[in-house]
Nucleic acid binder design. Structure first.
Lengths: 208, 208
DNA sequence: GTCTATACTCTGATAGAC
DNA sequence: GTCTATCAGAGTATAGAC
């Protein structure tokens, strides 16, 4: 465990190593994946892997750093050109679900394996995760300011609840299932915004 | 690893051992908790712990069995005497959040440590988790049948999304935070049912 | 930069005296 | 039922030849 103030990692096949490790971490979990497995899957020997990362923890930290970059730029790309605030939120949800579930195991690891981080690495990564959540907050802020959202609603709670619904998708989504990722993103968006009640009960519920 | 068809476990201090183990698993994760730690925390030596559970996995499996019993009976207790279907859903959400976050680490372990299960134990526990989700499904079914829920909504998705929001609370809830567990449960319930849009936008959103 | 070989620690699991 | 003592193996990490 060498939690030195981890500086930037730089070597030729960094992304390849991280991508392969991420797949293993996702399938088996960080603790249940050995360095021998990782190096074997990368086509190198443990010594060579050690040349890149002095400690196993460092792989995880570097992976999470990259994952945060990826998810942030993914969401920004998907939303930056959308003007309507409600559609912007929808685009963000779709993008988040898609990035989490298809193509990028690092993001999954970021969201589900943070308990494996020790010491300073933990606080550092958590701070970067906050940076991501902050972007969501700006989207929701706009909705609030433009009075799309009811006065009595705390948008911090919306963010936490919305991200919960969205992240949990990773525990139940099946590629061969009934719904596409976009459909799932839309469903969460719809529920969050419109709710699920039929009109007459929606009116009645306001009085509760 | 002795994943024999694990039969009922029975010894005097079973619950004490499981409760202590659950706290450790919650704090550090299953893999990062050693049998030596567990036995020490239980005030016994590794040999004595081994007398109760032949393998580490067996502790986890037995814990999850008990956790499922607890969460099911907790939700049933909280909802069985509530007649109004919407209030029943609200009571269930409150109960789930409360059980998950206060007093029962086993339930947390059940929800977040299932990836540590191997082989037949995995499928068995998953089957029992389905039993729990099925109870939610009956609550939602009633809402649908009584036409509280719009025709175009799939209640399977509601269940998955709702449970996601509720379970994810475990990753961000702080006891000293702004909201009580009941308030959080209510907020999720409200969002799921009513949505968060202001009235004029709610009307407009129907056309999307 | 990459490999071989290995050091050292800790793990889960066990055997057997009491 | 509980303890002591120990096993075999896996884990991370390292040293040093090439």
């Amino acid at each position: 465990m060498s939690n030195q103030e981890t500086s930037l990692v730089d070597f030729a096949d960094r992304e390849k190593v991280l991508a392969i490790s991420a797949t293993l971490f996702r399938e088996k979990g960080f603790e249940r994946t050995s360095l021998r497995e990782i190096s074997k899957a990368c086509g190198m020997l443990p010594g060579s892997l050690h040349y890149r990362y002095r400690a196993k923890d460092d792989i995880l930290v570097d992976m999470m750093r990259l994952a945060i970059e990826r998810i942030i730029s993914g969401i920004v790309d998907a939303t930056v050109s959308v003007d309507d605030p409600l559609e912007k939120l929808r685009a963000a949800m779709r993008a988040h679900v898609n990035i989490l579930m298809s193509g990028n195991d690092m993001v999954y690891v970021l969201l589900f394996e943070w308990r494996s981080l020790h010491g300073t690495a933990h606080t550092q990564i958590m701070a970067e995760r906050d940076r991501y959540e902050h972007y969501w907050q700006t989207i929701l802020d706009t909705l609030k300011v433009k009075q799309y959202i009811r006065e009595d609603i705390d948008i911090n709670l919306i963010r936490l609840i919305g991200l919960g619904a969205v992240n949990w998708v990773a525990t139940w989504y099946k590629a061969e299932g009934k719904y596409s990722l976009d459909q799932i993103g839309d469903a969460i968006w719809q529920m969050l915004t419109r709710g699920v009640l039929a009109d007459e009960h929606h009116e009645a519920a306001k009085k509760l």
